[in-house]
Design a protein around this nucleic acid. Structure first.
Lengths: 147, 147
DNA sequence: AAAATATGTCAACATATCTGACCAAAATAT
DNA sequence: ATATTTTGGTCAGATATGTTGACATATTTT
């Protein structure tokens, strides 16, 4: 017999609210330092994905971000102007332009990440490793789920 | 000796990314039905908080939403116009206007919630109750944490 | 009576997204 | 070799959500 208390609507609403607040707080931390460099959350999301997927091309990035290319284009334009990322033509298919962090970008990304890291670091530090594993498992199920 | 693998930067970046994706998917589900009623995510956030805190006043709602009163006002104006929420003067302090879901609002909220519920419901259904508890614990630590 | 509080409103602006149309270069298919 | 598709970039205009700052009104507190 499984205890299904946590499938009640109230519990689900609870989860939704926690998810909203956790997201909001986590992504509001780095806004200050971004703003100093006249960048916003959108730039950071792109920067983050490039950092974690060096050599990604524009199309793949588009898919991960789930925004339109027009939106992404403006973001990339500014990141390039500030020399935070660079594009290198793919030798096998020179239509493709692969994205890398520029030297500046690596330094800047690290700064922004540090501002965001504290909150997560402390939350994880005060949790045991089993909790963290389960936390990530549930998040993954939410992401892949729906139907 | 504690295993601190999960405190490495790469793990933290992982968590941040999962949080971003989980939030995005969870809150993109209800956009379609909202749009049909010419409403957006902002209206739903307010509606959700009123549903979970019936009788909340404007100031308290403002604090929970962390937006300016001018922003909230536009949202509330539309929700009132559509008869989704209603305001009732507080008898003890008639400056205060307490917010309640209107009859329409209750029905509409339920519809929107259902569209969002599926994803969370399934994720929780495929997790055990311990995982769900730990999932929520970590989220709470993220929300309250930082320093 | 004066000050503080709760709510509402106006205007101007910032940002991040969208849609739709269009272009060019390069690769692939016929 | 030409036609089509893919990849990336760009323009213009619209929408959603937020911001600041100024101000108005009603009510409560001091």
């Amino acid at each position: 017999m499984k205890d299904l208390l946590y499938l009640k609507d109230e519990q689900i609403k609870d989860c939704i609210q926690l998810l909203l607040y956790a997201y909001r707080e986590t992504f509001s931390d780095p806004l200050e330092i971004l703003k100093k460099n006249s960048l916003g959350a959108a730039h950071y999301r792109a920067l983050h994905l490039v950092e974690r997927n060096e050599g990604i091309n524009v199309n793949e990035l588009l898919i991960k971000l789930k925004i339109t290319k027009q939106s992404l284009n403006r973001v990339l334009k500014e990141l390039k102007r500030l020399r935070l990322i660079k594009q290198v033509k793919d030798k096998n298919d020179t239509r493709r332009k692969l994205l890398y962090l520029d030297q500046n970008g690596r330094k800047f990304y690290q700064q922004v990440f540090e501002s965001q890291k504290k909150r997560i670091f402390n939350a994880l530090k005060h949790s045991d490793s089993d909790s963290v594993i389960k936390f990530k498992e549930v998040l993954k199920k939410i992401i892949n789920g729906k139907k």
